[in-house]
Amino acid sequence: MYRNTKGFSLPETLVAFTCILMICGLFIPFLIHYAAGLQKLQREVEALKFLREGVEEAIVTHEFVNHSRTYKGVRYDLVWASGGSGEACVRYDEESGAFHEVCVGAG
């Protein structure tokens, strides 16, 4: 029996290439969704950091002033409700155009 030891045949190459494409086709959408989720989580963490910094500053200085800052292209707005005697919220926009809000209350 004659054995072909010179390399892969065309059908073997096509089957291997098809398997690689199927694996990529399954995992690339998952990775894109995962990366979008990580970006959303990072924006929320940054909002919580900004909220914490604003509340700590207000406790120390007794001045309840609204602030805003931009980090990595996202604008975060710290807003004090009812003149500082209630709730502090950080508002930021999602990539979809919707606003998200993280708040902490006085009690």
Results as ranks from 00 to 15, higher is better:
Asn66Asp: 15
Ser85Ala: 13
Gly105Pro: 00
Asn4Ile: 09
Ala16Arg: 01
Ala47Asn: 11
Gly54Thr: 04
Leu21Ser: 06
Ala58Ser: 06
Glu87Thr: 14
Glu53Tyr: 07
Gly25Asp: 07
Glu56Val: 03
Asn66His: 06
Glu12Gly: 14
Tyr71Gln: 12
Gly86Val: 01
Gly73Glu: 09
Gly107Ile: 14
Phe30Thr: 13
Gly84Val: 00
Cys89Trp: 01
Ile59Asp: 12
Ala16Asp: 03
Phe17Gly: 12
Leu14Thr: 09
Arg91His: 04
Leu51Gly: 08
Pro29His: 04
His33Tyr: 08
Ile59Gln: 15
Lys40Ser: 13
Ala88Thr: 08
Ala35Trp: 07
Tyr2Cys: 04
Phe27Gln: 01
Glu101Asn: 03
Cys24Gln: 09
Thr13Ala: 14
Arg3Ser: 11
His67Lys: 12
Phe30Arg: 15
Thr18Ala: 15
Leu10Ile: 14
Gly37Arg: 00
Lys6Trp: 04
Cys19Lys: 01
Lys40Trp: 02
Ala36Ile: 01
Arg75Lys: 10
Ala58Trp: 03
Val55His: 02
Tyr34Ser: 13
Phe50Met: 12
Thr61Leu: 03
Lys6His: 08
Leu14His: 09
Val104Leu: 09
Thr13Pro: 08
Leu26Tyr: 10
Val104His: 00
Ala16Gly: 13
Lys6Gln: 15
Gln39Thr: 09
Arg75Met: 03
Met1Gln: 12
Val60Lys: 01
Val65Trp: 03
Gly25Cys: 08
Arg52Thr: 14
Tyr76Ala: 03
Val45His: 07
His33Val: 11
Leu14Lys: 05
Gly25Gln: 06
Phe50Gln: 05
Leu51Tyr: 08
Gly25His: 12
Val55Thr: 12
Val104Trp: 04
Leu38Val: 11
Glu44Phe: 07
Ala58Cys: 05
Ala106Trp: 05
Glu53Lys: 06
Trp80Tyr: 13
Ala36Asn: 14
Glu12Gln: 13
Lys72Ala: 14
Val102Pro: 01
Phe27Gly: 08
Pro11Trp: 07
Glu12Val: 04
